[in-house]
């Protein structure tokens, strides 16, 4: 049966539902996270990402659906199952009156095979602050301490709920290194974030959740039909190019007819298009095309499009 294969995945979700009274926060969510991958969960605020993640972490009960995380139902809340999870919740914790080292040592004591405390401090870049009490830390440092608390158990599956919110750019890169460290060792990560560059840099696959529903799942490169969306080539006609008809372009190329001065064309073969355009322009005496751009859809374009389409349909 397919289910046997499916539950071999660290995260397997079928028809997940969560309702508060009459309000459906999560509706029929299916998710499949493969071993060793970094999987990103994207979506606007209030879309149900955190609720979904919290159900998977076993800190929130579901209304319905099948959920298997590392082969167990999270609702069982088994300690030996918890020992294999690393959880960094969205809100930053306060550990007043304890030093960085004490906080990490304290949580390490709960795990059968934790990372050495020094290594955990090193990984989040808090080695220099180890004797500082938590209330003396900056917001970003507190967030890093939170990450250290989440990963000190050397987890097989890590939940990172907006781990880099509030971090400065250098600290964000350190956080990325940490995600890669676990990925390189074959561990699985479920990442929630609003930063699409983070998704591009770290994740292999992603799901987009809008209004409690998964509207798209796929590899980051293919998300939202990104690979199928044509590139846009544009430049400005100058000099003798103005009166000339365009050369023979790749068969799929569509030229935007609205503007005579700026040429905009959509094609899946931008290289071939340019190969035709460049000699054509050179013949007209133009050797440097003004305002030449080749644009491929960014993850952000695709993401925003997905969200506006699905939110529009919902309201």
């Amino acid at each position: 049966m397919a289910a046997v294969v499916d539950t071999a995945n660290p995260i397997h979700v079928r028809g997940l539902r969560k309702r508060y009274g009459n309000a459906s926060v999560v509706q029929d969510v299916d998710l499949e996270v493969h071993p060793g991958e970094v999987f990103a969960l994207l979506g606007p605020n209030g879309a149900g990402k955190t609720t979904t993640v919290e159900i998977l972490e076993g800190v929130r009960r579901r209304t319905g659906g099948d959920v298997s995380v590392l082969g167990r139902d999270p609702a069982e809340d088994a300690p030996e199952w918890r020992a294999r999870l690393g959880i960094v919740p969205q809100t930053t914790g306060a550990y007043s009156d304890l030093t960085v080292r004490e906080v990490i040592e304290h949580f390490a004591a709960f795990y059968p095979a934790p990372l050495p405390v020094e290594q955990a401090m090193e990984m989040v870049g808090l080695r220099k602050q180890e004797r500082k009490q938590a209330h003396q830390l900056s917001g970003g440092q507190l967030r890093r301490l939170d990450v250290a608390v989440g990963i000190v158990g050397d987890p097989d599956l890590i939940f990172l709920d907006e781990p880099t919110t509030g971090l400065d750019p250098a600290a964000r890169l350190e956080a990325w290194e940490l995600v890669r460290y676990f990925a390189d060792r074959g561990k699985t990560t479920l990442l929630t974030t609003h930063y699409l560059d983070e998704v591009e840099a770290l994740a292999q696959r992603a799901a987009v959740i809008v209004a409690g529903k998964v509207v798209e799942v796929g590899t980051v490169a293919e998300l939202g039909g990104r690979r199928d969306t044509p590139a846009v080539v544009s430049f400005t006609r100058v000099g003798r190019m103005a009166g000339l008809t365009l050369p023979l372009l790749p068969p799929d190329a569509l030229v935007d007819p609205s503007d005579d001065e700026v040429v905009t064309l959509h094609t899946h073969s931008p290289t071939q298009a340019l190969a035709a355009i460049l000699p054509w322009a050179a013949e007209a005496g133009v050797h440097e095309l003004p305002d030449l751009r080749v644009q491929r859809p960014t993850l952000e374009d695709v993401y925003l499009k997905l969200i506006s389409e699905n939110q529009g349909a919902d309201s």
């Binding site: 306060a94 007043s96 709960f110």
Partner: peptide, 14 residues
């Protein structure tokens, strides 16, 4: 209120 109980509940602490 400050996330300690939540983090303890998320750990394998008996």
């Amino acid at each position: 209120d400050t996330g300690m109980i939540r983090r303890l509940a998320s750990s394998p602490m008996p």
